[in-house]
Design a protein around this nucleic acid. Structure first.
Lengths: 341, 341
DNA sequence: CCATGGTGTGTAAACCTTTACATATAACGT
DNA sequence: ACGTTATATGTAAAGGTTTACACACCATGG
């Protein structure tokens, strides 16, 4: 029972008085063994406390039951919730999850490539738009892979993300519904494709409301808190000001709010602000931030489901799954005040 | 080269014209093989792109090179940074990290126990004070293990944490140095041992300043935002109020600040507030929160180093490592105002 | 009664390493 | 020259599992 070495399939076979092949079958193809035998085997398993040695199994099968998740930054607030979705889905199908984070370092990426090459992972989930494997990327033999959030640069890898255009549209539509016309978009078209798409949502919303280019203000930031603050500074130097700031993400929105508060303005009385992502601190801001919530757990779940399908079928059913994010209304948006500047 | 199946040690042996044993030795005990041979082998490895099959290796060696990290909540802001420390240290010693989160569910815990029993992990890092393996805990055969943050209930498992007493002492000393005498401690003696220790730091600081029991106020909360808010409500109903709130963690401090702001008070002019942990949103509060920062990455690094030592030595050098946390001074503390209430 | 087929089980090979042991060669001291 | 020792390499077993193949048995249909 509490022996020093774990029980093997052979121990079970001896006790159940069958061959090891039968034990293996009783476990993995129960319908192939007689009821009476299956019973004996199960009892023997209970007695010995046997659990199958995953290493031996993986070796024999030529594939592991582990899936590698590679992310540039584990600390990213998006990450942990997506991970929950990934993990739940994986576990319910007998897979485990292995996490690697590259910190955008090609050297570290290579280690994961080696890891993959040594067959230690059956599949790969990528949290970055570019393969983190340095210059060997092109020749790399990858296991079935799925991208999260962004299409992976090297074609042929399906991905699961969020419909950024539709999400951004929800934000701009809210502002317009509240009566705003002159709405600034504080964006970032360089770092992430998702950010460009959010801009598209903004433009589409403005188009739909037939708000002309003269009332549109687009500030190119870089998605950081500081860039939001900077945007406010810059816009204040110009002549015309918006009544609302639609920000490409929550970080930027936080920066905008800091900038506005520093200048003594009240949000949302003087200016409305929206974000995107719903990071954890969004709810703790004063005022709490109206934003677009990433369906993080769902993204994880879908990504893993897609990967598992890939692992069994070999062919992806879909090459792109976009989930619809929700608008979270909090206190940073109101109707524009009549008396303004 | 880009074959369908990965190269094995046999391929390398054939090309280098040596036996597989020599290849294995050239890799793992280079000093045991002649220079010329080593060269041939290395070339052959380069040609074939060989990487050793981790599963076969683990099977033969009877242990894996993976370490399981079990945490109740991956989303915990403390988690990701500790993970970075764990991961860096592990990787530099040839180990990989596997993450499991139990969501405090015994069923899930059992799955990890099975996982451990099947030898898939060489060691275990526990992020919880209790073994998450349900009632089987007592009989469980565990691999070398290290706790993080808290001593693990089942004795004999060394742990790495933070010196909560000293950390709390820093907070109370700051308040006293600013001139506060009547300092309330909003605590939680039930859920985590760490929280009791912080209380001890508070008492020690008050003792050292010779502040009597009549000026000490202790409110028992439960470490949540809501309990902080509640504490304010309750204390306002009593006669005497403190000039400063020392909170057992940042969540509680956030609640206290919300409570005070709701009543129209200004922080830190009317009341000073301190937290503990330095969660990410602490810096985004208005005012930003003065708190005690957990040395998260260092905790991870030390925990893993201790585990690796256990894995090689078998015996822990130390049974408890306490790291000293830093005081982070922000804007939620000032001298008590003369005119009050 | 025999041919056929289905069902349940066993035998043994294969997956890829590592390493104890054996062996071959070289170096050295006498 | 020969025994002794050190050095370098090879042979083969072992680790725990899965599964193709073979086999035994029984039922069915003619």
């Amino acid at each position: 029972m509490s022996n020093s070495t774990p029980a093997t399939i052979e121990d079970v076979a001896r006790i159940a008085n069958v061959s090891i092949a039968t034990v293996s079958r009783a476990i993995h193809m129960p319908e192939k063994v007689a009821n009476s035998t299956r019973l004996k085997v199960n009892q023997a398993i209970a007695v010995t406390g046997y659990t199958t040695n995953a290493m031996a199994r993986s070796l024999r099968l030529g594939r592991s039951n582990m899936i590698l998740v590679v992310a540039p930054d584990i600390g990213d607030p998006n990450f942990s919730n997506i991970l929950i979705g990934l993990e739940n889905e994986a576990r319910s199908h007998g897979y485990g999850i292995l996490i690697g984070h590259t910190q955008n370092d090609a050297q570290r990426g290579l280690e994961y490539l080696k890891f993959l090459n040594s067959n230690q992972a059956a599949g790969l989930i990528l949290f970055t738009g570019i393969l983190p494997f340095g210059h060997q990327t092109m020749t790399a033999r990858l296991p079935p892979s799925v991208g999260v959030f962004e299409p992976v640069f090297n074609g042929g890898i399906p991905y699961v993300g969020v419909d950024d255009v539709a999400g951004a549209r929800k934000a701009v539509d809210l502002l317009i519904a509240e009566g705003h016309r002159k709405i600034a978009f504080i964006g970032d078209s360089r770092t992430r494709l998702a950010y460009s798409r959010r801009r598209m949502g903004y433009e589409a919303g403005m188009d739909a409301a037939e708000i002309g280019a003269d009332l549109r203000i687009v500030f190119e930031g870089d998605g950081t808190v500081e860039s939001g603050r900077l945007a406010v500074e810059q816009l204040f130097m110009r002549d015309t000001l918006p009544t609302a700031f639609m920000c490409v993400n929550d970080q930027t929105a936080i920066g905008v709010m800091i900038g506005l508060k520093t200048r003594g303005y009240d949000i949302p009385r003087d200016f409305s602000v929206t974000g995107f992502d719903d990071v954890p601190q969004a709810v703790f801001m004063t005022p709490s931030l109206t934003t677009i919530r990433q369906p993080r757990t769902a993204i994880g779940k879908h990504a893993m489901a897609l990967l598992l399908e890939l692992l069994s079928n070999g062919q992806p059913t879909e090459t792109e799954i976009l989930l619809l994010p929700d608008l979270v209304v909090r206190n940073s948006v109101s109707a524009p005040s009549r008396v303004r500047r």
